[in-house]
Each structure stands twice: as structure tokens, then as C-alpha cells.
Simulated assay, not measured.
Amino acid sequence: MKRCLEVWKIGTVNYVEALKLQEKLASDRKALKITDTLLSLQHPPTYTVGKRETVRNLLIPDSELKSMGAELHYTQRGGDITFHGPHQAILYPIISLRDIGLGARKYVEKLELTMIELASLYGVKAQAGQKCETGVWVEHKKIGAIGVRISSGITSHGLAFNMDPDLNYFKHIIPCGIVDKDVTSLKKEADVELPAEEVIQEQLITCFVKSFGYNNVLLKDHYADT
């Protein structure tokens, strides 16, 4: 069976802009106007809070965020507070779970597998978190975050994998609401020299395609084509 995926590589995009694009694509996917679509991007420094609005896990006042050049946004995804920023590979899948016969739990497991596979390419042993610990971990340090939204069987939001972000940004939050756990990156954990970030983001896409069993992939390079 032919499983089609369109991949949009859109570079560094403001969080709000990416959110609007996801909403439009999710609506189009629901109306069967488009096929499954994957957005591959990075964000400027941004803290996001999930629908439970656990802003108490932000440890500094809003005014300090501005001086750091970071933004704070409330979203409708699941999960707790997290950070997005430069040198972090982000994937937002806009896909129909019904079409590929997946429930929410299996979907999240496949997102975890995508990041675990990527880490393994660099000799880094990552695994899914324990109960109540979402995302992907290297021992007790988080290397990849997951926060998803599913509406009418269509997904949005997704995963963020730490290639080499400034980990100091994570000191200002309790990442995902889990106290006493550190955050790490591929750069810190890998014993090998990393290639250009575009290469790692490309590999993350490949791992996603493999995890979800797509066999017909169309690449679209940037916004200008939309």
C-alpha cells in the first residue's frame, strides 16, 4: 500500500507563525485537501506551555524572558512547559492517525522511536521515559521532548530533539514538570564529531519516515513554495 508523506523543510520559523501554519494544514488534512505532511524546522528561543497551563514551572518572571530574547506561548498541545530554540531539530507531523491505523499511545511511541533511532546513529543509547516521563532520555537526562495535539484524528505539534542548544535556557524551567532531572544534547552525549545540523535534521526525517512506514516521500524546501 502506498503511504504518502510531504516534507516541508522551512528553516527557522517564529513559533506563532509555525502554529498558524499547523492549524491551516491540520484543517486541510481533515478536509482531505492535502496528504500527510511533516514540518521540519527550528524556532528562535521560545518557552511553550501545554493546555494544562503549568506556568508555575517557569522559574523566572516574564520581564526576564524578554531581556533574554525569549518568548512565552500558551498552546493546546499535551505535555508541560518546554523550551524550543536554535540548534534543536523540530518535527511537527500533520498526519491522519485513522488513515495509518494508530491510536494516541502508539503514535507517541513511534515519535519516541524516531528520536531513539537518531541518537543510535551516533552511538548514543536513548530510551523512552519511565511512567509519567514523556520524551526520550539518555540515562536520567532528557534529550528529546514530545508534546502532541490530536483533533478529529489529525495530529499537530510533535517532537523536539536537542542537537546542540544552549542548555542554560532549560535552567529557567522545570522541564516537563519533572524536578531533579537534567537536560542533555547529542553534542554532549556523542563521542563522535557531529555533521552539519541540516544533515542531522535530514536524518531525523529519515528516522520518522522509517518509524511510520511511509514509502512515498515528497520534499518541499521552504515557505516560498506554499
Rank of each mutant, 00 (worst) to 15 (best):
S120A: 14
N215E: 05
W8Q: 11
G79C: 07
G177S: 01
C4F: 02
T35E: 13
I174G: 01
I205E: 12
V183T: 10
G129T: 12
K131Q: 14
L41N: 04
V7N: 03
D182V: 00
A18C: 10
G144W: 07
K210D: 07
H172M: 07
I173R: 09
A70C: 10
R98C: 05
I90G: 00
G129I: 08
K51I: 12
K20Q: 14
H172F: 15
W137Y: 13
T48D: 01
E109Y: 15
G213L: 04
K210Q: 07
K188F: 08
G153D: 05
G147V: 05
P45E: 05
P165T: 05
I200L: 13
G144Y: 12
D164Y: 03
A224I: 07
Y122Q: 07
V192E: 14
K181I: 04
A26H: 01
T37Q: 07
K142W: 08
D99C: 06
T155G: 02
E71Y: 02
S120T: 05
I154K: 08
L102C: 04
H43A: 03
G101C: 11
S120R: 15
A119F: 10
I150F: 04
I81R: 13
Q88C: 11
M163Q: 02
L186F: 09
D225V: 14
L159D: 03
V16R: 11
K106L: 13
P61E: 01
P195M: 09
K171N: 14
S40G: 02
T226P: 00
L167D: 01
K33A: 09
L38G: 09
C4E: 10
D164E: 13
K24H: 09
L91P: 04
T134L: 06
V108A: 07
G50L: 11
